[in-house]
Computed example of a mutant assay.
Amino acid sequence: MKFFFRFFLCVACAVGSVSCSHHKIIPDDELALIFHDAFLANAYLGPRNLAHDSLNVYEPIFARYGYTTQDVHYTIGNFSKRKSARLGDVVEQAIDLLESEGKFFSREVAVLDTIDNIARRSARRTLRADSLLRVRSLADTARVSFSFDVVPGEYEVRLKYLVDSLDLNTRGLRSQMWLERSDSSRVQTYTVSLRRLSEGTLSRKFTVDSAHRRLCIHLLTFPNKPLRPSFTARDFRVTHTPPVRVAVGQLYEQQLGIRIFADEFFRAAAPKDSL
């Protein structure tokens, strides 16, 4: 493993400058973190014998820190202009981070966790998002009832809510969510009482398999005789994340041919007249 890092250092130090003023220069500390995550990804991908070279699978790593592949190219290429800076120092910083983490976690667990999380974040989809939902009459309650057909994975429901002083229901207001099976039976039922006159937060995750067919969400229910409500929901969001195995598979299919710091990477960062 040390040999690989030393080899990378020799190749990286030979990279020339790139002139592209609209790209960002990544600070050394952040670049070291990017290298750290990329080295873990390399270790995970190494034994999989993927045939093609590409950087696309690492775009989520760059994006996590707010940068693009072109920003990384540009930053590496500009090290030659910085007399007091060496790319090798940044690589050594990333190595030190890895070695420090190795004291607490096994290498295999750290690598798998990094790649799995990248894959899950990449595959996560928002099914519904509303910044503001208001219920000021009984007829409005239909606005805060939702139903989603589901596939295996994890569904998360999040929102902030307020039951204000204009609400005439003195007690008993609730939110209810559940999964429905193919035989219409309910499982993973979640019921929570809504607090009055203070903003509350609801967050619930549902684990779905092939036996489930629908996710039902009723943000406002009345156990007793309903009176005029005054309910506000903010930042309501429903997301779906597929199982890890599926997410990683999708990532490989979408970004097939994966190697960071391959020859193509450095050729992209080198000046045109040096090719």
Rank of each mutant, 00 (worst) to 15 (best):
G200K: 07
R86W: 02
H240D: 02
R64N: 12
F35E: 00
F265N: 01
G172N: 04
Y65M: 01
S198Q: 14
A233C: 13
Y65H: 14
R259V: 01
E108W: 06
A85R: 10
R196I: 02
V238Y: 11
Y161I: 13
R214N: 10
A142K: 15
D53T: 10
N49E: 12
V57F: 13
R259N: 06
S122Y: 14
K103R: 15
E199M: 13
G16H: 00
I115Y: 12
R82V: 08
S19F: 08
L127P: 05
E101T: 02
G88E: 05
G46C: 09
Y161G: 00
Y161T: 09
Y155K: 03
F5E: 08
R214K: 15
Q70V: 06
R64G: 08
D183C: 04
S80K: 11
V18N: 09
R64F: 10
Y252F: 15
F236M: 06
A32V: 00
G88R: 00
V150G: 01
H22M: 07
D273Y: 14
L179H: 04
R259I: 04
V248G: 00
Y252W: 10
S165I: 14
S80A: 15
M1Y: 07
P271Q: 04
L159K: 07
V15G: 01
L45N: 09
S19T: 15
A262V: 01
V163T: 09
S147I: 09
P229S: 08
R245D: 15
L219D: 02
C216R: 10
L159D: 13
F62T: 02
F105E: 14
L9F: 01
R158L: 09
R107I: 08
V151A: 14
A211W: 11
R124E: 13
D113W: 06
F39I: 12
L197H: 15
L197A: 12
F104G: 04
E180M: 13
Q188T: 06
L197Y: 14
P47W: 07
S182N: 09
L202G: 08
F35N: 01
D273P: 06
H22C: 10
S137G: 03
M1C: 01
K103Y: 11
M1H: 04
N169K: 11
F35T: 01
R174E: 11
T207Y: 13
R64M: 10
A247N: 02
G257I: 03
S131Q: 10
L220M: 02
D116M: 01
L220R: 05
R267Y: 13
Q93W: 00
A139M: 02
T68W: 05
T189L: 12
Y190D: 05
R86F: 07
D183F: 03
R158E: 13
P60Q: 01
G200L: 08
S84I: 11
D116W: 02
F146L: 14
P243Q: 07
K205M: 06
